[in-house]
C-alpha cells in the first residue's frame, strides 16, 4: 500500500515540476470555452444555456485529454526510456503503477474541471450542478472508464510518436462525434449512431443530464455502459501491461 501512496504523490509532484506543461494543460480548456462562447452566445443562445451545454461537455473532453495525453503519454515515455523496465525487476506490481497514475490523472483533471466551472460561473452565469452528488458520481465512473481505456490503447503503441497518433485520432473523433462541440442533432443519422459507439458520448449525456435535468438514477443505461467499459479495460490494462517497448 505504501508503494502506491509514495508513487502517486511523487508522480503528482513531478507533474507540477514541469511548469510549462502545467500552464498549457490548464489553459487549453478555458481558452476553448471562451472561443466557443464567442461563437455561440448571441441571439439564439443565452449565456446560461451556452454554459450549461458546453461546460459539462468540456469537462468531459478534459477526461479524454487527461487520460490520453497526460497519462498515456507519460507511461509511453516511461516505457521508452526504461523507467518501467526498472520497476519490472522490483516486487512492484503493474496494477499499483496504473493506480498511482490514475490518482495523478484525477488530481490534474479535478483542477481543470474546477477551473472550467469557475470560469463558466464568472463569465457565463453558470450555476453549480442541480444534482451535484450525481454529477460527482458520474465523473468518478467516467474517470474509471476512460483512464484504463487510454492506458491500454496507448500501451499498444511502439513509441511516443505512435502513442501521440493514437491519442490524436481518438480525441478528434470524440471531439466532433460525441456531441461535445457540435450538437448531434445537426448531424446525419449515420453519424448520430456512430456517436453512440464512442464512450465520450455517454460521459457527456451523464454530465449534462445531472447538471440540469435529473439525478444519475435516471441515466442507468449510460452509467452501465461506462461501468462496463471500466471493468473490461481495467482487466485488459493490468493483464496486458507492457514493461518495455520491445
Amino acid at each position: 500500500m505504501n508503494a502506491i501512496v509514495k508513487l502517486a504523490s511523487l508522480e503528482t509532484k513531478m507533474f507540477f515540476r514541469d511548469r510549462l506543461s502545467v500552464f498549457w494543460t490548464f489553459l487549453f480548456p478555458v481558452v476553448m470555452i471562451w472561443l466557443f462562447g464567442s461563437m455561440f452566445v448571441g441571439d439564439n443562445m443565452s449565456q446560461k444555456a451556452f454554459a450549461e451545454y458546453f461546460v459539462p461537455s468540456w469537462i468531459g473532453v478534459n477526461i479524454v485529454t487527461t487520460s490520453f495525453f497526460t497519462l498515456g503519454t507519460v507511461l509511453t515515455n516511461y516505457r521508452e526510456t526504461g523507467v518501467l523496465r526498472r520497476y519490472q525487476s522490483t516486487p512492484l506490481q503493474p496494477w499499483k503503477i496504473l493506480a498511482a497514475h490514475t490518482f495523478q490523472g484525477t488530481v490534474i483533471f479535478a483542477i481543470s474541471a474546477v477551473l472550467l466551472l469557475v470560469f463558466g460561473m464568472i463569465l457565463y452565469d453558470l450555476t453549480l450542478p442541480t444534482y451535484i452528488g450525481s454529477t460527482l458520481l458520474s465523473l468518478l465512473i467516467s474517470i474509471l472508464a476512460f483512464f484504463p481505456f487510454a492506458l491500454f490503447l496507448t500501451s499498444l503503441a511502439k513509441n511516443a510518436q505512435s502513442a501521440a497518433a493514437i491519442s490524436s485520432l481518438f480525441l478528434n473523433l470524440m471531439l466532433f462525434l460525441s456531441g461535445a462541440t457540435f450538437p448531434l442533432e445537426m448531424m446525419p443519422t449515420v453519424l448520430q449512431y456512430a456517436a453512440k459507439i464512442l464512450p465520450l458520448y455517454y460521459v457527456i449525456q451523464l454530465l449534462r443530464g445531472t447538471w440540469t435535468e435529473a439525478p444519475i438514477t435516471e441515466y442507468g443505461f449510460e452509467a452501465a455502459v461506462l461501468i462496463g467499459i471500466a471493468i473490461v479495460f481495467v482487466v485488459l490494462a493490468v493483464r496486458f501491461f507492457r514493461w518495455s517497448g520491445k
Partner: peptide, 26 residues
C-alpha cells in the same frame, strides 16, 4: 537486485525521492 544498462528513472525525480520510493517496494 538489478542495475540495467540502458534504463533510467524519472528525469525530474530527486535522488532522495528515488531512494524513498524504491525502499517502499520492499
Amino acid at each position: 537486485g538489478v542495475q540495467f544498462q540502458a534504463t533510467s528513472i524519472q528525469k525530474k525525480m530527486k535522488v532522495k525521492e528515488a531512494l524513498d520510493l524504491f525502499s517502499s517496494f520492499y
